[in-house]
């Protein structure tokens, strides 16, 4: 229907005029179902007394509400905007992550002081360093409010990405500082770190983030960290020659994540 309902007809409809022909009545109701602007007008054209009364009450209420001072807020331990990025859950896990990186740094410095032949533990751990934080970004086991949050509109990949971003913002500077102290160039560990985080998110879509991170971390220990320490040689995966491979993996997994972004609304 192109034409809107005339003010006169709308007024008759709202006041319940029984004289409106059935076909006109049908057309009016069909139009009102679809047209928000005519519904909007329907409040104004009908019973003038009621409309005026409602407006008066509203004005009075608005005045009364603005007159009462809002309850004084107490100091927040997290600013309200911060809760959109982190949950209180993150703090202990991120602290543990930082501690682990510092311990690895300690080993590296101690080994370097003796002979310097062992591969750097900081570089070896870097790809899996964000995993403690990422695992707790979306988990039923550790998050007491998970059940409630999982039923909200924002639940899904967007929320997980926000939280993962915070993890990376904390972990990467710590890794960068530790890496520069042991003389490892950021290029060697930054891309594997990002690629592994994205892999964990993509895999988490299927099996849940805690399982995905645990599986990938075990794989990394078995394939890279273990052999590197036993043979005392840095794995080829963490040298400059592997960088194009890591870049390709990051791009591929990002595409998978984008393609599956809607299914993530049902993340467990």
């Amino acid at each position: 229907m192109t034409a809107h309902i005339s003010t006169g007809l709308l007024g008759r409809y709202v006041t319940g005029d029984t004289g409106i022909a059935p076909d006109v009545l049908w057309a009016v109701e069909a139009h009102l179902e679809e047209c928000a602007s005519c519904r909007d007008r329907s409040a104004e054209v009908g019973d003038v007394d009621t409309a005026a009364l409602l407006a008066r009450v509203r004005t009075g209420l608005d005045a009364a509400v603005s007159a009462t001072a809002p309850a004084p807020g107490r100091r927040r331990w997290l600013p309200s905007r911060a809760t959109r990025w982190v949950t209180p859950l993150f703090v202990p896990w991120l602290a543990t992550t930082v501690l682990v990186v510092l311990v690895a740094l300690g080993f590296d410095l101690a080994a370097g002081a003796r002979n310097g032949a062992l591969p750097s533990l900081v570089v070896l751990l870097a790809p899996v360093a964000p995993f403690l934080g990422v695992a707790t970004a979306w988990t039923r086991r550790f998050d007491p409010a998970h059940e409630m949050v999982a039923a909200t509109a924002r639940a899904g990949l967007g929320l997980v990405l926000r939280r993962t971003f915070v993890v990376l913002v904390v972990v990467i500077p710590v890794l960068a500082a530790a890496g520069s102290l042991v003389g490892a160039s950021p290029a060697r560990w930054l891309l594997p770190c990002l690629a592994f985080t994205m892999c964990a998110l993509a895999l988490g879509d299927l099996v849940g983030l805690p399982r995905a991170t645990a599986g990938l971390a075990l794989l990394w220990v078995a394939v890279v960290i273990g052999p590197s320490i036993v043979t005392a040689r840095m794995s080829v995966l963490l040298t400059e020659t592997a960088l194009p491979g890591w870049a390709a993996l990051t791009a591929l997994v990002t595409l998978v994540l984008i393609a599956r972004r809607n299914s993530a609304a049902e993340l467990r």
Partner: peptide, 26 residues
């Protein structure tokens, strides 16, 4: 939705908690 096992973050105030849920519900 109020789940049977109602979990929450103990350090949030009631108002903060409800604000947080309102944000999550867009």
């Amino acid at each position: 939705y109020l789940p049977q096992e109602f979990g929450f973050y103990g350090r949030f105030t009631v108002r903060e908690f409800i604000e947080y849920m309102a944000w999550l519900k867009e």
